[in-house]
Amino acid sequence: MEADGLTRRFGRTLACADISLKVPAGGIFALLGNNGAGKSTFVKMLVGLLRPTAGRAQVLGRPAGDLAARRQIGYLPENFRYPDWATGAEVIGFHATLADIAPVRRRARVADALHRVGLGQAGGALVRSYSKGMQQRLGLACALLGEPPLLFLDEPTSALDPVGRRDVREILQALRAEGRTVFLNSHLLSEVEMVSDAAAIIRGGRVAAAGTLAELLGTAHEAEVRLVGGAALEAAVAALAVRWPVRERQAEGAGVRLVVGLAAPEDVADVAAAVVAAGGRLLGLQARTRSLEDVFIELVRA
């Protein structure tokens, strides 16, 4: 999938501004952002529900939204309610027909899709009897139908309980193992961190950061330092600040608690040495890697 300057306006509101992204085939790509950041609008343009105001996008080598492109994608919308008068199997069967799955294989494909999302026993029940989580599983089954090489999943776990979330995570990992590409929109950063290979963070409709997860978190090592030092305290803090950016500072009794950014986890030994060399007394030192959530918060608040 490749987007080039994709832009969408709703009246005076700029939902997506000049978004350029390239997602290679295979693996899980996550698009992150606050509510209203433009994530769903971006995906809707890729699947042909919205027309871009400017820019263009290609999906599997075809213009986004054209029939040939749609033949090869699966899509789970963010907010949807399938027809409550139909059974789960009827809904999937309808989508199987729309997806041009041959009639002889249709029944088996419907059963497979329902089984894969844990609705194997509930396929004959009316959708109106489904819980919210079951409806979300049904939506996921629809997206998986026909084994498309590219899936767009907009908040696939938002209505699921912890067991359901783990199930979806396992499905995503299986899809990756099968060589498919998953484009994931999610608020659940801890889950994204667990399954994604790459991500982009958008803020106010613009890409604030993009890259592999390792790249996004690569410079995100830091150390929490607790020290005292009487007269030498400020000298020790200054010695640290010279080499490492001080991200947080908090008074703690006679001492101070600092969070400093590190270039690499190994720098933590140098931190200890610098404090001691400046006459400070080290009460605690802990190296840590920032989470995707830390990076996200930092970027969206910037």
């Binding site: 033949r71 699966g74 899509y75 989508h95 939506g139 767009f152």
Partner: peptide, 8 residues
């Protein structure tokens, strides 16, 4: 939305 994402 899900219907329109199909090749129809």
């Amino acid at each position: 939305q899900a219907v329109l994402a199909r090749p129809i």
